[in-house]
């Protein structure tokens, strides 16, 4: 299978005053198309930093990050933005919807930024996704009128509306109860299977890792190993 993400010896250091704080210390990772990959590790292990590098919202201090065959360090700010717009979808822990827009408008926004589809085509695309995430009746609602689970489903619809090759989710269930979280992961998994979209999500929750087809474990900014969910569960003694 072709690698959609290729990370080679990626180092990311943050400068805090005179202090250099290493967040990633030489991570190497390949993610193939159609993968449903969990990045696991405790807080401060570098999960979000790695997702930021893969998501082209940040660039490595050294090493390379290739997304869809493009080396992110070689791209300009505008090219990075275009790569995010056309290739990557984002799902955030805190949903990060635009509070003043309706559910429909929030989902439609990336399509408007792309300027590829006309009005009826956009409407059709958004309506189909609303149906898919079970929010057909909520298009005219504002995010503040929805529950946490509903908001995250809107965020998933927004991430998928441009039909990206890659969707990144930073702890997508962290702010949800376990039942809602499981529903959200089921939805992501279903979309991964049906749309062949690659998903990479970070978590430190064992039950969330269980949904993945592979788990990459990070500790102190280093990639520890790549295991199956069953192996990850076996080491912690929790059911996979």
């Amino acid at each position: 299978m072709k690698a959609i993400v290729s990370v080679r010896e990626a180092v990311k250091n943050y400068i805090l005053g005179n202090v250099v704080v290493p967040a990633l210390r030489g991570v190497t990772l390949d993610v193939v198309e159609g993968d449903f990959l969990a990045i696991a590790g405790p807080s401060g292990s570098g999960k979000t930093t790695l997702l930021n590098l893969i998501g082209c919202v940040d660039t490595p201090t050294s090493g390379t990050v290739e997304v869809a065959g493009k080396d992110t360090r070689q791209l300009s700010e505008r090219e990075l933005t275009d790569l995010r717009l056309h290739t990557i979808g984002f799902i955030f822990q805190s949903f990060n919807l635009v509070s003043v827009l309706t559910v429909f408008q929030n989902i439609e926004l990336p399509l408007l930024l792309q300027r590829k589809l006309n009005g009826p085509e956009r409407a059709q695309r958004v309506a189909a996704l609303l149906e898919r995430v079970g929010l057909r009746e909520y298009g005219a609602h504002r995010p503040s009128e929805l529950s946490g689970g509903q908001r995250q489903r809107v965020a998933i619809a927004r991430a998928l509306v441009t039909r990206p090759q890659l969707v990144l989710a930073d702890e997508p269930t962290a702010n949800l109860d376990s039942v809602t979280g499981a529903h959200i992961l089921d939805l992501m998994r279903e979309l991964n299977r049906t749309e062949k979209t690659t998903f990479i999500f970070s978590t430190h929750d064992q039950s969330v890792m269980a949904h993945a087809n592979a788990v990459v474990r990070l500790a102190d900014g280093k990639l520890v190993d790549r295991v199956t969910p069953a192996q990850a569960a076996a080491e912690t003694g929790l059911p996979a």
Partner: peptide, 12 residues
């Protein structure tokens, strides 16, 4: 944070 989100999803 909204600016960050919009920039992340592809707003120039």
């Amino acid at each position: 944070r909204e600016i960050g989100t919009l920039r992340a999803i592809g707003m120039h």
